[in-house]
């Protein structure tokens, strides 16, 4: 099996983007997960719905919304263009934005599940032992929610690796620039490059399998 440079570029872009997105989205994921799992506040149902939306919307629709928002005349994109003179759409940054938005719900779900499994009584016990809410979070909630957090992280990462719909809408399908694995497979199928399709499908399957297997290993006892 000989992998072409274009295929390697697609694979490495996918991995790079998925890692970047994870690093960027993990802190807000923790915060949102903690809010949803441990706090009651007005607008909680709305926040939950907003975060989970990309999970149920067709990715194409999420991508379209992002395209409108980040376009040169869009609400956010226009602002960035005016200040920095940078265009977001059809760039690698757009890929990162697209996969981040799509994978965020999976990350948050895992974190919420993990944190919900930590009994409030343990956190209260820590408070009575003199721990501030922040110390309680880092010494009790976080380590005990570990499995859920790892699970959400790996699922989110896998989702990022394979994201297609939102990416193609907001970042296009530019070889060597914004063409991820999923987009490369799409192009190869279209061009009838069967050998390339098989290789990419094989690689994707192996990566997805490993990610899922890791999730199981970390989340199951």
């Amino acid at each position: 099996m000989r992998i072409t440079p274009a295929e390697i570029a697609a694979l490495s872009l996918s991995i790079k983007v998925a890692l970047f997105s994870l690093v960027i989205m993990f802190p807000p994921g923790l915060l949102v997960g903690w809010l949803l799992a441990k706090r009651t506040f007005p607008g909680k149902a709305f926040l939950n719905t907003l975060v989970m939306c990309p999970l149920v919307l067709p990715p194409i629709v999420s991508g379209y919304v992002l395209l409108i928002l980040f376009g040169r005349h869009g609400f956010i994109g226009g602002f960035i263009y005016q200040i920095f003179g940078i265009e977001i759409v059809f760039s690698q940054v757009a890929v990162i934005i697209a996969v981040s938005i799509i994978s965020f719900p999976l990350l948050v779900r895992g974190i919420v599940t993990g944190m919900e499994s930590v009994p409030l009584e343990l956190e209260n016990a820590a408070r009575t032992l003199g721990a501030s809410p922040l110390k309680v979070f880092w010494t009790i909630t976080f380590p005990l929610a570990y499995r859920g957090i790892v699970g959400g992280t790996i699922l989110g990462f896998s989702k990022s690796l394979g994201e297609f719909g939102a990416t193609i809408m907001v970042a296009g399908n530019i070889p060597d620039k914004t063409q991820t694995m999923a987009l490369a497979i799409f192009s190869a199928v279209h061009l009838g490059e069967d050998a390339s399709v098989y290789r990419l499908v094989f690689i994707s399957t192996v990566v997805a399998f490993i990610a899922l297997w890791l999730t199981e290993r970390f989340t199951l006892r």
């Binding site: 016990a125 009575t128 501030s132």
Partner: peptide, 9 residues
Amino acid sequence: PPEKRRFGY
């Protein structure tokens, strides 16, 4: 807050 009360529970 509980962490300032210093009551063992």
